[in-house]
Simulated scan of single mutants.
Amino acid sequence: MILGVAHHYAADAVETGLPDAAAARRRLSENDPGLVPRLEAAGARAAGPAPGTADLRRHVDAAVLGLARLGLRHGHLGGDLHDYHCETHVMEVAERRLGHAIDALGHAWLPAADWLALFLFSACHDLRQRESFDPPGPVGGNEAASIAETFRILTACGFSEVADRDTFIALELMIAGSTFDARPLPHPEAADLATAAGGALARGLGLWLDGERPDWASDPALRRGERLGRLAADLDTANVGESFGHLADSALRLCRERERRAGRALDRAESGPPCLGFLSRGQLAYFFELHRFASREGERVYGPGKLANGPGVRRVSAALLQRFETSPPASGQAVLDAFAGLAAAEDG
């Protein structure tokens, strides 16, 4: 719509199989009857004390459809389970992280429409995870495809690109901004791209827009979308400032997902070194180098938790490396088990 990336990605069989919110509700209820009520409660919390019933319904319908499609594509409803990018991540953002931000800041901190946009982001930002190409520019292929599908979800749930332009733009910029560059710093392109500084694109999205659309700041919808994109990125990566147990759990889930996607069985020796690297040096790089808060709200809500977690991340990473210093891990699962034990001791 604004970035011009969505047109590269067409609907797939999952979209055809779950065309609307009614079908999504049926599918989710068959698998886990509690998911839809939980998502409805999270939507109501975002809407606040005086929601417009029809508008809340559209937002919840879109979130339910997004959750069900992700569950079928990469979650527990289908055959390509991603341990991190599945229904679990949607619910931790929609319920725990967004809910905590609302409690910490107060619902009046943002208009209800902004909280609801962040609620929709939680359900739709990771819809696609296996795209084979990236569009031109810094937005990732998974994110661009997720934007395209989110536009179709909004339309299927009664949103109009004309009447609800602000919603479409906000979701486009929020999902684009969630593109996360996990390459070590600095990487070769860093000298050429202002946005290639590692971590979430949201921190540099305004700079990129300055070059691509120099007049963007004169459009209130784009200014709102860019601002919400920074807060959305902070919610997406808020594990850094949650309890140490939640931080460790997200690392374990991501590690399992990486190994599954790489085709390395966790009970085999070949998965040992990559798991050890990811759960030790990889966590240090993510926590201390790649992650930076992109919004004042994110830093206010989750900054103190990140500050408290920092020493524990260093201790657990050092202890994990020491555990396997004299002999390599027998398997990736051995590394995961060791990391889990060290993290539990730290959290306790």
Rank of each mutant, 00 (worst) to 15 (best):
G204T: 08
L320M: 09
G282E: 10
G310H: 04
G245F: 01
M91P: 02
L279T: 05
E40N: 04
L228E: 12
A319S: 15
E270M: 03
L254Y: 07
Q322T: 15
P37N: 05
D80F: 10
P138V: 11
P304M: 03
F151T: 00
G106C: 09
G198H: 11
A248S: 14
R253G: 01
H82P: 02
D236C: 10
R258W: 08
R300A: 14
T179M: 12
D114M: 02
H246D: 15
L28F: 01
L342I: 05
L70C: 08
R292S: 10
E212N: 07
P188G: 04
E40R: 14
W109D: 11
R256I: 02
A50M: 04
D181Y: 09
G177M: 09
R281W: 11
A6T: 01
A63S: 03
L56C: 09
S243R: 04
Q322K: 14
L201P: 10
A101C: 15
G312I: 02
A191K: 12
A47W: 08
R256E: 06
G17D: 10
L222N: 08
A44P: 03
H82R: 13
A251G: 13
V313I: 15
G48S: 06
E289H: 15
A238G: 05
R58C: 06
H59P: 00
R203C: 00
A251P: 00
L28R: 06
T88V: 12
A217I: 00
A10H: 10
L70N: 09
A318V: 07
F324Q: 03
L222I: 04
G43D: 12
E92R: 12
A190Y: 02
D164M: 07
E131C: 11
H74I: 00
G66F: 01
R183V: 03
R38W: 04
G204Y: 06
E257M: 04
R227E: 03
G277A: 09
L252I: 04
G199T: 11
L290D: 06
R152A: 15
R230W: 00
L320P: 08
E92W: 09
L284D: 09
E143D: 08
A202D: 14
G332T: 00
W216S: 09
A294F: 05
A194V: 14
R38D: 02
R97K: 15
R258Q: 11
R26Y: 00
L307Q: 08
H76V: 04
G137D: 13
F159H: 12
N239I: 04
D134W: 01
L127R: 03
C157N: 11
S250P: 00
W216F: 14
H76R: 15
A156W: 06
V90P: 12
D134P: 00
G229Y: 08
L110N: 03
W216M: 13
L120W: 08
G66D: 05
L154Q: 05
P329F: 01
S29F: 01
G66K: 04
H59F: 07
L105D: 07
D166Y: 00
G272A: 04
D166H: 14
E95I: 11
S271L: 02
A232G: 06
R223H: 00
R165L: 08
G43Q: 13
D166R: 15
A217F: 06
G229R: 11
A233Q: 07
R58N: 02
T155P: 01
D32P: 03
F287K: 09
E226D: 10
